[in-house]
Simulated assay, not measured.
Amino acid sequence: MSAESLERRTRNYLQSNVPQIQDHGGHFEIEDVDEEAGEITVAIGGACSGCGIAPMTMKAIRERLPDHVSDIETVNVRRTSGPRAAVMPDKTEEMEEMDEYTDYSPPF
């Protein structure tokens, strides 16, 4: 398995199954691929930087990507900062742990 193949399959999955990122003015970037470890790092940005449901999107990507793209064991997702960043980056982890996000299943 090559890093290029893993990146391509990840990009295809995100474009097809998480179109809300781009539909709502956000974007994603695959920052790192470690094919030997089965680990991939995805950054979401643009409008996602300040979006209140970005933690749910990040959680969904972390949990669902390994189920849909073979050879992926670990998914790291981070939010990039930018001019639209309305949510303080240090609050993201706290938000992901909130009960409201625990059982929420985004529609993608």
Rank of each mutant, 00 (worst) to 15 (best):
E35D: 02
A85H: 14
F108Q: 03
V87C: 00
P107A: 00
V33K: 00
N76E: 14
T74A: 01
R8Y: 08
G26M: 13
K59R: 03
E93R: 02
D34I: 06
R84K: 14
T41I: 07
N76I: 13
E73Q: 10
R9Y: 10
T80N: 09
A47I: 06
P55K: 09
L65G: 05
F28R: 05
S2K: 07
V69L: 01
E39G: 02
G52D: 06
G38D: 09
E36S: 13
P107E: 00
G82M: 06
E36F: 09
I44Q: 05
V69Y: 06
G46E: 13
E4M: 06
P107S: 01
D34H: 05
D32K: 15
R62K: 09
V87Q: 01
I30G: 04
A85E: 13
P107T: 00
N12D: 12
P107Q: 00
C48N: 06
R78D: 12
D71Q: 00
E96P: 15
V42I: 12
H24K: 14
G52F: 08
E31N: 13
L6N: 04
Q15T: 11
A3Y: 15
I40Y: 06
S81N: 10
A47Q: 11
E36K: 13
D90P: 08
N12H: 14
A3H: 15
D67I: 02
P66C: 03
H68I: 10
N76F: 13
S105F: 04
P66L: 04
A3K: 15
T74Y: 00
L14W: 04
D23P: 08
R78C: 10
S16T: 04
G46S: 14
P19W: 14
S49N: 14
T102H: 11
A37M: 06
R79C: 11
E93P: 02
K59M: 04
A3E: 15
G52E: 09
P83S: 05
D99P: 08
V69I: 03
V75Q: 02
I53T: 10
A43P: 03
M58A: 10
T10E: 02
P83N: 05
H68Q: 11
I40N: 03
G45I: 05
D90Y: 14
P89I: 11
P66H: 04
R9M: 08
E73W: 04
N17E: 01
P66G: 03
Y104H: 02
M95L: 04
P55Y: 04
R62E: 14
P83F: 03
R64Q: 12
R64N: 15
A85N: 13
I53K: 10
H27P: 08
A54S: 07
Q15L: 07
H27V: 07
D67M: 04
